[in-house]
Design a protein around this nucleic acid. Structure first.
Lengths: 338, 338
DNA sequence: CATAACATGTAAATCGTTTACATCCACTGA
DNA sequence: TCAGTGGATGTAAACGATTTACATGTTATG
């Protein structure tokens, strides 16, 4: 594994290091003849330019840091996969930072990019891991960054996500059209933006339908399957039970459905359940889960493209791009039982 | 985001760059007084040493490259999460390389570590992305590497995995004890080691039970949910249908169960189904999936520990550590119907 | 034939650290 | 008093590439 350097190549090819470098990065600047000579040596020796050396000089690492709340969630894994794929196709590598929901972990990761480990950040968590003030434009205070999915509540960022409010309203609309009026919600952690947004959508839909919001019908989950199961206890003990439940992600919906069924409830005859995300397993539950599809692939691609644009030196265009979601109506929702 | 360097700190503190460096990495070498002086400047300026510079000099990047077949698979995501977590706790970052099943992608990633992007490799794919010969011991030809889950068929590697053969036999044993004798198998891609190993376990178990192996009962899947569904067509068209199916991963089991149910089969009354992996969703299917648990967390930790040991300079101890699996008996398997 | 213009190659500076070695200084013990 | 010791700091050379300014060689042109 001992590797040789550009100087060695240069001396073997009887040219200068500069020429070797040019052969590699600006071949058109060197004559056909020397180019071949150098290329031959490179092939023979299996020489690979050391990226650290190059990075140090060019001040570009070719790395992108992805800060993710929890890679073990299928939505995130799906997005990361798309990201990784596209990043590599542009010659970038992706460094993974899973915060496991801990804010401080995000700060540690940000530290790494301050230390020059990466050129830019893909932020999938809702906390901006930088101290910023209002004296200067935001993008002068942070490295190139695009914020996706969990939208940080700050102006001046490039953001990419689905419109959680609208999506939640769509989900609710579907239930309302089925005649439901006692619709429960199982939220995610209320300190994460996506959950708040979906909650807003939930309340808005209720309001638009002329229904009154009943706090007893909302239980705070944490996006885990378990919390979906736990929600059942709270909800089904109510004197007036909900006829439908809107779970803010599929994991909770899956847990909730299972628990409901073990208690003898029939879905959707007794109670309708709707999820959010459309993870791979959503259509394989029994009954198949009605849910809101998030375009993981598209989100991943859009993120990379937006970040790469900044890395090319273009000033960031603060904005929020909403990518289209869609309601996948399957078997877990049905008309309210009389 | 313009950052300053060690020289700037040095001059502001009126000391030499070397002293600043020492304050940061070997504080005991510098007097209390100058130490404080330098620390003060560092705090004031928010200086962070550039990792590239340091890496270049020390020839250590603090990066680990994880080569994964498919991060969107929950097992892999779970392992990666554990890895990332522990790696960071030791000051290492993890670079992600998803091969999406493509061998060549693995080669590209290996290229990156040859270029000095990472200090070591965690290889979760079954292809060793290096040309090796037998003239020299393997570990002199490749960077520090530990191979997990999909075991490369080469001597001299440090490997960590569950014992797929034994695990498959355990799964089969369970079905055999329930009285099944026509047991089908839905394999993974037969060019990946885990699938071959499980297949061997399948055949061995049959053999031990005195049953004859029937090729018509094995269908080649690809570890995807879809291929599990497709297997149904092939299996249930047989004149003599299987009474149980061993799916080589949970995704396929989930697809297969669903399809079976839509065709009116009752699981496990008509047919038993067993999976492999014990992904988070396995216990939430209907019926809950009997499956083989893989200790994702432990695998991740063991990988990092083994790699870090090598990175400390200890020569690798070629071996294969089997981590304990366990059979999770749930509702998808039952006694054979008479 | 002198000179401009262009193609090609070279030498040296640079990026931000670390580290082997040199230096300085104060203190100890004979 | 002075050699010796040892601790604190400074100096300068790496590390491995890229890039700039400059030098050389070659060809074309008037």
């Amino acid at each position: 594994m001992a590797s040789i350097g550009i100087k060695e190549i240069a001396s073997r090819a009887k040219v200068s290091p500069a020429t070797v470098s040019r052969v590699l990065s600006n071949p058109e600047l060197v004559s056909q003849k020397t180019r071949n000579k150098v290329k031959k040596i490179i092939d023979e020796t299996g020489y690979r330019p050391n990226r650290l050396g190059a990075s140090l000089r060019t001040r570009k690492t070719g790395n992108i840091f992805a800060i993710i709340p929890d890679i073990s969630k299928p939505v995130n894994a799906g997005i990361v996969r798309a990201i990784e794929n596209r990043a590599h196709s542009f010659g970038y590598s992706v460094l993974l930072g899973d915060t496991q929901g801990m804010n401080e972990r995000g700060l540690q990761y940000a530290e790494l990019v301050k230390m020059g480990q990466a050129d830019g950040i893909l932020l999938f968590s809702g906390d901006l891991p930088f101290d910023v003030n209002n004296d200067k434009p935001l993008y002068e205070q942070i490295p190139p960054l695009v914020n996706a999915n969990e939208r940080v509540d700050t102006d001046g960022l490039v953001q990419i996500a689905v419109d959680n409010v609208a999506a939640a309203k769509d989900a609710m609309q579907h239930l309302l059209e089925l005649g439901h009026s006692r619709i429960a919600a199982v939220t995610g952690p209320m300190n994460v933006p996506s959950s708040c947004e979906r909650f807003n959508g939930y309340k808005l839909a209720l309001e638009n339908a002329g229904l009154t919001y009943d706090p007893k019908l909302v239980v705070n989950g944490d996006y885990s399957v378990n919390s979906g199961e736990d929600a059942v206890d709270q909800l089904m003990l109510l004197r007036l039970r909900p006829t439908a439940v809107f779970c803010f992600n599929d994991d909770m919906a899956i847990g909730l459905m299972k628990k409901l069924q073990t208690h003898g409830y029939d879905i959707p005859a007794d109670i309708s359940v709707i999820g959010f995300d459309d993870i791979r397993y959503a259509k394989y539950t029994t009954p198949a889960l009605t849910t809101v599809y998030q375009p993981m692939e598209e989100i991943g691609l859009a993120c990379i493209d937006a970040l790469l644009d900044q890395l090319k030196g273009n000033p960031p265009q603060p904005r929020c791009d909403f990518l289209p979601h869609s309601l996948e109506i399957r078997e877990s929702t049905g008309p309210v039982s009389k």
